[in-house]
Computed example of a mutant assay.
Amino acid sequence: MSVYPYPMLNRPTMIWSKQTDEQLDLTVNEWIETIGELTPNWKDYDITILGVPLSKSSISTSAASENPDAMRRAWRSFRTYNLDEDVDLARLKAIDLGDVKQHVTDIGFTHDQIQQAMVAMREHHPHTIPLTLGGDHSITAMLIKGWKQAHRNETIGILQLDTHFDLRNFAEIGPANGTPIRQVIESHIVEGNHVHNIGLHGFFNSLALKNYADEHGVHYTTMKTVRTKGIHQIVHDALAQLEVAVDTIYLTVDMDVLDISCNPAAPAATPGGMRTEELFEAVQIAGEHPKVKAMDLVCLDPRKDVGELGVKSAVHTMLSFLTGVCKRKERS
């Protein structure tokens, strides 16, 4: 491909220095490549990373727009080798595409840019797994719409790790971060019974939204059930149900799924959520599944963080998913 296929993106501003000689011990920032003046050979890559610095559409006050770069800065604190799994992510090739261009006030324009970014990724290098760093959860609806636009004949399912249903009424509150799952259900892109939400709990969802989920067949598992059966079993069961019903499973991780003690940086952080090790295991299991073809990570506000607790948990979540992808690739 001789031209840069992303007019809707700003190229990465964070360009890390690389060692010219082959290294056996890479930090993540040394491993993930960035787009410079030369257009890369797209067929060489397994993972494309996209930043979406949007938080104007958040219901809660949020600077989640700063999360993509906060995560990028934290890459240097992590190495590509995962001791727990004896896996080196450097076996994969990953490239940072940069960030979706934002309009100062027009959320609708920015949402269209997000959708077209996904379309471009699927048209120009459909073999890669797109990994998106948000931004608030409103971006998920647009990324899934972009996937559907590029793959019109595919049936899409969603594996959602979240404290909330995110089934609020778009007609009432607009394109906010509480609406993405309802948006894709009501636009007939995803069937309700092809949504599996894991992580809801406590006093943070309304009865009306629970009733909507039941009416549309949305599958949901509370943290009480997760603690009874174990995250490993719950995620495997959800994937087993999805794999026979859909062509593509889209993984969306709202970082407010973590307990507030593990992640104070989520604008809607709550007590009673997942522990970090449960989240890391869940996304690694998802990464190993061949039908999980895209992931996003949303709703993290670095300004609310304490000692980079939330940001580093988000990077670890991203790398845990890629550990699963690496193991999948080795098996295939």
Rank of each mutant, 00 (worst) to 15 (best):
D69S: 13
D296E: 11
H188R: 15
K210W: 14
T317L: 08
I198C: 10
A176C: 12
I156L: 15
G192A: 03
A265Q: 03
R91M: 14
S206R: 03
N205V: 05
E154F: 10
I49H: 07
D44P: 06
A94S: 12
L159K: 04
Y6W: 09
E191C: 07
N29T: 01
V87W: 05
Q116K: 13
S332G: 13
W16L: 09
A282M: 02
P53C: 10
T222K: 09
L279Y: 01
T317F: 09
D96T: 01
R76N: 06
H232T: 01
V28Q: 03
L279A: 01
D99T: 04
A269Q: 02
S2H: 09
T270I: 08
G287L: 10
K304W: 05
T39D: 06
M118T: 00
V292T: 04
Q102Y: 04
G272I: 14
I158K: 02
H111F: 11
A208Y: 08
G134K: 00
I59Q: 02
L9A: 07
A294K: 00
I114K: 01
L143R: 08
R11L: 14
T34V: 15
A238M: 08
A70Y: 07
T105E: 11
I173K: 02
T323R: 07
H137M: 10
K229I: 08
V292N: 04
I189C: 14
G51V: 07
V257S: 02
I95V: 11
Q113E: 04
G98F: 02
A63F: 10
W31D: 04
D96M: 07
I198S: 04
E278G: 09
V246Y: 00
Y220T: 09
S206Y: 04
I234C: 09
V104G: 03
D237M: 05
S77W: 13
D136L: 13
L251Y: 06
M8L: 11
I285C: 04
P12S: 00
A150V: 04
H194Q: 12
Q241E: 08
A314D: 00
N169L: 13
N153S: 09
F109T: 11
L322R: 02
G135W: 01
A238G: 01
T39A: 11
V3W: 12
N197G: 10
T20P: 03
P290M: 06
D214W: 08
E243L: 09
D296F: 14
I35E: 03
L242G: 05
G230A: 08
E186W: 05
I49C: 06
R11H: 12
D25W: 12
R73N: 06
R275Y: 11
L167N: 06
G272F: 15
W147N: 02
N29M: 02
A94K: 10
D136C: 13
N10H: 11
L258W: 01
I59W: 06
E243C: 07
K148C: 04
E37V: 13
L297E: 00
C299P: 00
